[in-house]
Design a protein around this nucleic acid. Sequence first.
DNA 1: GCCGTTTTCGGCCCGACTGTTTTCAGTCG
Length: 577
Amino acid sequence: MDNSAIAAVFEELAELLEFRGENPFRIRAYQNGARAIRDLDEPISEIAADSDRDLAELSGIGKTLAEKIGVLLSTGSLPQLIELRQAVPEVVIAMARIPGLGAKKAAKLHDELNIKSLDDLAAACREGKVAAIKGFGKKTESSILDGLAIAKAASERIYWAAADKIVAELSEHMRGCDGISQMQWAGSYRRCRETVGDLDLLAVANDRAAAMDHLEAYPGRASTIARGDTKISIRVAKSFQVDMRLVDADQFGAALQYFTGSQAHNIHVRRIAKERGLKINEYGVFKIEDDTRIAGATEEDVYASIGLPVFAPELREDRHEFEWAQKNELPELVELDQIQGDLHMHTSATDGQNTIREMADAAIERGLKYIAITDHSQRVTVAGGLTAERLLEQWKIIDEVRPEYEDRLTIFKGIECDILEAGGMDLPDDVLAQADWVLASVHFGQKQPRDQITDRILGAIENPHVDCIAHPTGRLINRRDPYAVDMDAVMKAAKEHGKFLELNANPARLDLNDIHLAAAKRLKIPIVVNTDAHNIDGLDVMRFGILQARRGGLTAGDIANTLDLKDFLKLRKRLGQ
DNA sequence: GCCGTTTTCGGCCCGACTGTTTTCAGTCG
């Protein structure tokens, strides 16, 4: 079992224990354990196998969880989980996912009304049976019916890039409101997570009601969920929720820190504050002894008041940031303008829309100094993948084009060569040997078992002509799971053979993810952030890749295409490419 | 269940909101 599978077991255990009315701190211990394992950038099986190390040394893992991890690693399952699953009906879990219902209310409904499905629940609400139960009322009943209707649409997290579009439009709209002096988006959007569940806007306004009226006048508003004195929630397209909170100017920093999260980061911050005799909430930082307020207007003074630096929002997940801060080793995260090259893009020769010259011109406009043209290979028939002959023709064209770009842009003769289902590369070695840059990627046989697909990718890494593995896990966020590939084996092989791994910047891919990136950084495997552009606009997704890289804690030094051409070529030579 | 410069017990981040109550439990972030 890999880290995420073990983490999933503990998450499920925590959820099931909640339905059993367990001690909330015990439940949180399982949740914390799950998060610690999920965020780990090395395989927990290796720590377990290492006689010099002890699982219980991991923060959040104690004696009990360490034992359970041992059982999971050796048997693949946990008797406690199987028992709990039998004890908690699935419909109770489904009910608890309805907004407003939690574990306790769901369990009560199930027990008292013999609910067997969500349809049963809807019927019970319509018949007024729910309101008749002690602790429930008419409002709960109708909110359950509303919740059932929107639960599915509202539960979908959207791509960060999609949230960013909504943010841009709403920001523009809200700038038209005169009385707003400060405004900032918080939450997972600000932390640049790959997906965003809702949006949180903080604002300082001299007339709060007017600011709320202005938000309600947003043309994209579908409905208003709630409106109070300090907070308003609306829905925009596809049930996506947007909250706006109005705060005083001297509380803005505390509110921004609080609503940016993550929850785990905030818990850690408050624990540190408490150790120093301070209390921190969304209104400010206070001395516990006499409730004196000592900070709150800016995030800087909030963090400074408890002796911490302002963390980049991308790092606020309670992974390594506090440890780094303590050692004064917070990474200087990579910035978009440090990118000098883009080594994955397509042209109209296959499934792209623009010519080599058009892509080259667009790359120059975006400040790039080198690019690789990497069309698909022949196996990808739907994309009109290139045969060896057509590829050699394309390279001739690149030879012709190159003089026009001398001193401005270097164009590599590249290929995105498929790794075949049976293993091996889609183009002969003598052709690949003539390329400046070879990406290897899987497009077919994605559902192969772990060993098989891992062996295919390892085979590509061992091929001396391959330089980089593109979108290494193949996942499409919300749409397709990653291959069953053993990423740890892939990383070790990449390290051993001096190969790059790609961070594909397409907002639906963002592949590698942040945890993989942290692992690659630890192993000193050079990353290249590529757009995989299929037209000139596609080059603009680079910024999404940079945000993902930042979440992985990557600096410019961890990313090969921040190097200028000379140093990039030197690095390749050093790697033996 | 985890954890420790107040270490093997007794804490565990903190507050808002809601609905249903009449002082609070449950839910949420």
